[in-house]
Design a binder for these strands. Structure first.
Lengths: 222, 222
DNA sequence: TAGATTGTTAATCGATTAACAATC
DNA sequence: TAGATTGTTAATCGATTAACAATC
């Protein structure tokens, strides 16, 4: 197997897509899937798919394709999804509440195991089945819990301080919903979900589309 | 000004970042910003910034930099953010509720003007200051309202049908929070916000980091 | 003027696509 | 065996980075 250090980021971003369609195929009872089958389900070219998978090993059988069960298992392992992943959320506002209760997380072994806030009126109250804890006590609490995934659902102003606190408490991966660029040590992985930014891009694209005639073709790269 | 049709997608994705730091600079009372100043605030190289802006015109003055007010105004115009943008949300669950009340939208002229659901127990109730409408009536209602931005906050199973309904009702841009690839005509712009996918990428990155020694350097591309 | 910074051209880098020998 | 499909090498494409003449 090649060194995973040099896997291109676009490839890594596509792995979860493969995971998802493999899971669907497994549910449908399919035993194998060729790269062309996968192209049909993902919109990603079969060439690209074979290339992506080849970074991690040889999983397919010429003439047949990929065993759904095997590839699913291997990818889960490669991505570290073969054991449960506890996460903490900071920010018990509307967004934090929605994320804490989001059913899509549990489906993939992510479990929100702690919710923190700095607001006295929220600390001690319940959010779903969790008590909201004081962010001040995070370092202490997390010594025992050892959560390594942090989700930031606070306003932009608070986000950097929250990130710093998380990192001190042992968090190594951050999913940031605040519209701000976090400064973190290089060893910390950060992904940003920036909803306003996405709307801005849409706003631009819409203007752009006004000027070009449209062939009525379905399905396109997004 | 060059044809905007051939502006690279990565460039378009960076425009909102420029917008954001320009707004911040304006608040701070700064009159001009050089591409190097912008690099400091965004983490995007000054070369890249100048290149990106050059797709749309010549906004800077050699030796001085860019006028904050002018560039901000021009970018707002280029991105279609100089007038208010009404949006509709479908799915009045936890996520839909959080998005409807999300303060970050209003700050950039996006206004949630309609909320739809298909659940009888929700239709007719209020969400913030909006009544939840029956999705069945969307086409009819939107004839009058003319909303062109749709936000999908439903479970994956419902998302494709919702997208189809939106498009029939005149929506041209879709922000999709459901973890599924939407099939839409090419003239429709789609952006996906896939929170589980982001967690998966983090999960992989974390594994990756385990194997490589880390120089303790702050600030890096995310 | 001298120093700073732009806009653009050329060089580099990296990812995607095409092609095909190997193999089931 | 013949047909299908893989894994990989080579060709292409497109974006980023470097360099610099033009200009304030």
């Amino acid at each position: 197997m090649p060194d995973q250090g040099d896997v291109p980021q676009p490839t890594i971003n596509r792995l979860p897509v493969y995971l998802r369609i493999l899971k669907a195929a497994a549910r449908e009872g399919l035993e194998t899937l060729s790269s062309s089958d996968m192209e049909r389900r993902t919109g990603i070219s079969s060439d690209q798919i074979r290339k992506d998978l080849s970074y991690f090993g040889e999983f397919g059988k010429p003439g047949t394709g990929y065993s759904v069960a095997t590839l699913l298992g291997r990818l889960m392992n490669i991505m570290g999804l073969d054991r449960e992943q506890p996460a903490m959320i900071v920010g018990a506002g509307n967004l934090g509440a929605a994320l804490t209760g989001y059913p899509g997380f549990a489906e993939w072994k992510f479990r929100v195991a702690a919710v923190y806030d700095n607001n006295w009126s929220k600390i001690g109250r319940r959010l779903w089945d969790l008590e909201i804890w004081d962010i001040q006590g995070m370092a202490q609490r997390n010594r025992k819990m050892g959560i390594e995934i942090g989700i930031i659902a606070t306003p932009a102003e608070a986000a950097q301080a929250v990130a710093d606190t998380m990192i001190k408490a042992g968090v190594r991966s951050i999913l940031n919903f605040a519209p701000i660029r976090l400064e973190v040590p290089a060893r910390i992985a950060v992904r940003n979900v920036d909803m306003t930014l996405e709307l801005h891009v849409l706003s631009y694209r819409r203007k752009e589309k006004d000027r070009t005639a449209q062939p009525p073709k379905r399905t396109k790269p997004q």
